[in-house]
Design a protein around this nucleic acid. Structure first.
Length: 587
RNA sequence: GCGGUGGUAGUUCAGCUGGUAGAACGUCUCGUUGCCAACGAGAAGGUCGCCGGUUCGAGUCCGGUCCACCGCUCCA
């Protein structure tokens, strides 16, 4: 091609998506705004189907609880969660050439301070460092302006009197954490349990590019799975222990290597490649989800995040990536071990108690000691110091004081000596039945728009110069096309009748009588319709129709009466096209 | 935010040195049509991204602005 760049799949998909109504950039009549997308009729249905795959795997099969909550969130929530501090970048601008740099990269490169340490610095500390070391523009060596910060959360005020700050949520997870106590009750106060939320999130990206891959408003599916860190075993491990996960390890990445290693679940756990059983369980589920929307396993991988790449809340973090034509590997889901970071943060900020009471298997009998000052002796002796001394005694563990008595015969508070006879030591037998702890969390988090994009890209096929979207049948936005072979002799009416019949069977049906039959097949292929029924003259005689398969371009003949049952089985994945009957011989 | 390229019909694009918009495909109507983008006749669709300037006259020249793509940057 003379112009240089060939048509890649990204371009093909965007063109097809606009033309056929999968998605397009929003607000086009106002010139368009980057980072916002409108899903058309076909796209909306496809996205719904992908979301129901997520619900299928997590909500229906695993009993994860689903909630739906608000996007606008009081500022305090994201202050407590650490997002207000972490969802921002310090930038410096050259006073001369206007070029912008990330302050942390600049300091790291020039002074060798680690990115992790820089992240902890405040804006004023960064300012000081730049001044002190006289850092200058990497390009033209001119002076730098004062560093500024970008907050990548959308900020607003709640209510008309500009009182309270609100943020558009940059993730759906916090809605789950703040409702923990109620949700725990709904899980019948048993660990482990999980909660999922699928909904919009907002991130005010500096430069949203790459179509559906980076949006300012997007759909996220956050699943928070709560478990007891002392009882972190997953009861599903035996079912998945031989599943294989391709993982690109952080140590390889540090050396600049790109090779993934295949681990069975068991190996990954044994070698501590993945620290949490639940985390690896959800990684396997994520791999399965992607497979079901049409991404082959060999086009998927997990990469371990490097320390400075990890979110502020995560200890161990993997990204699930899919290989795409234009950019290579892109992230479609994140798998973070968030520990008790979020629940603890909200406890500290609000005083709510998110601890869970755990009964011990065997109650522990404990003897508890109490040291009670004899006021009639201590008061007269220490006079104005008395208050301080009895205060100290009540705060000091009784055990320490008693030990001191045993060893030395007295206990020192400052320069005051307390002797055993100035206090009364009592003991009480207690039975400890349990303890309180904060659950740990692993979080799989899916970018639904990215799943949508990769599903489209992997469905995209070309056959005889025709574009085909070869969706797995369970996510196809239209399930069946119904066509009259010709528009006369009552075939059209019969076809409409059959469409109506199939619609009552809960199938997504499209009737089409425009143009030639071949054109209609082509149109259906491009919309990813798996099966097309054609009503012909024989239908009028023996009430049978032909069914044509999108990928094989083969046909079978089936009695109209059998359609509901066969199609139901087909779309539930119980039978394949071959099970419909013998192929009609092509002329 | 910076640099490069671009923005014309639903889609992909053409439009030379300024003279009030074209093609292909798609869509719709009628006819035709017995299974993989057939054919014939006809029709609808664009204030050429937006704002301003130069000019008798601007899709075309100039300035600004918005948006997209590529490269930096960003992507917690």
């Amino acid at each position: 091609m003379s112009s240089g760049r060939e048509l890649d799949k990204f371009l093909l998909i965007n063109e097809l998506a606009r033309r056929r109504g999968f998605f397009w950039q929003s607000f086009e009549i106002y010139g368009g705004v980057g980072g916002f997308v409108t899903y058309g009729p076909l796209g909306t249905q496809l996205k719904l189907n992908i979301e129901s795959k997520i619900r299928d795997i997590f909500v229906k099969k695993l009993g994860i609880l689903e909630i739906e909550s608000s996007i606008v969130t009081p500022g305090k929530v994201f202050e407590a969660s650490g997002h207000v501090n972490n969802f921002k970048e310090s930038m410096v601008e050259c006073a001369d050439c206007g070029k912008r740099f990330r302050a942390d990269y600049l300091i790291n490169e020039k002074l060798g301070i680690s990115l992790l340490d820089i992240e902890k610095m405040s804006l004023s500390e960064i300012k000081k460092i730049i001044k002190k070391n006289k850092l200058e523009c990497l390009d033209c060596k001119a002076n730098l302006k004062e560093p500024t910060q970008f907050l990548t959360m959308f900020k607003t005020t709640i209510g008309p009197y500009s009182g309270a700050t609100g943020y558009g949520r940059p993730e759906a997870a916090q809605n789950i954490f703040v409702e923990f106590n109620r949700l725990y009750k709904m899980a019948r106060e048993k660990l482990p349990f999980g909660v999922i939320q699928i909904g919009h999130a907002l991130r005010n990206e500096i430069s949203p590019r790459q179509g559906l891959i980076r949006l300012r408003e997007f759909t996220i599916a956050d699943l928070e799975f709560f478990f007891d860190p002392e009882k972190a075993e997953s009861n599903f491990i035996s079912e998945i222990e031989n599943e294989i996960l391709p993982i690109l390890l952080a140590e390889k990445r540090k050396k600049g290597k790109e090779e993934t290693s295949n681990f069975t679940v068991q190996e990954a756990l044994d070698k501590k490649v993945v620290c949490s059983e639940w985390q690896i369980f959800f990684m396997v589920m994520a791999q399965k989800l992607l497979l079901e929307i049409g991404i082959p396993v060999e086009k998927q991988r997990f990469i371990e995040k490097l320390p400075w790449e990890k979110a502020h809340y995560a200890t161990q973090c993997f990204d699930q990536e899919v290989y795409v034509d234009r950019w290579g590997w892109i992230e479609v889901s994140g798998h973070a071990y968030r520990t008790d970071y979020d629940l603890s943060s909200h406890m500290k900020a609000t005083g709510a108690d998110f601890r869970i009471f755990k009964e011990l298997e065997k109650p522990i009998k404990k003897i508890q000691y109490f040291v009670k000052p004899k006021m009639d002796l201590i008061g007269p002796k220490f006079k104005e110091k008395t208050a301080e001394i009895i205060n100290t005694i009540s705060k000091t563990p009784a055990k320490d004081i008693i030990e001191s008595f045993e060893k030395k015969g007295y206990y020192m508070i400052g320069d005051k000596k307390i002797s055993e006879n100035q206090v009364e030591v009592t003991q009480q037998k207690n039975i400890v039945r349990g303890k309180r702890f904060i659950p740990h969390v692993v979080e799989p988090s899916f970018g639904v728009d990215r799943l949508f994009y990769v599903a489209l890209e992997y469905a995209l096929k070309n056959k005889d110069n025709r574009t085909i979207l070869s969706f797995p049948r369970s996510i196809a936005p239209i399930q069946i096309g119904v066509f009259p072979l010709v528009n006369k002799d009552g075939l059209n009416e019969k076809a409409k009748e059959i469409s109506a019949l199939l619609r009552t069977e809960d199938l997504l049906v499209e009737f089409d009588d425009a143009g030639s039959i071949g054109r209609r097949y082509a149109r259906a292929d491009e919309a990813g319709v798996p099966l097309c029924l054609t009503i012909d003259y024989r239908t009028m005689i023996d009430d049978t129709v032909t069914i044509r398969d999108r990928d094989l371009w083969k046909q079978v003949r089936v009695a109209t009466n059998d359609l509901p049952r066969l199609l139901d089985d087909y779309f539930k994945g119980k039978i394949t096209f071959e099970d419909f009957g013998d192929f009609i011989k092509s002329k």
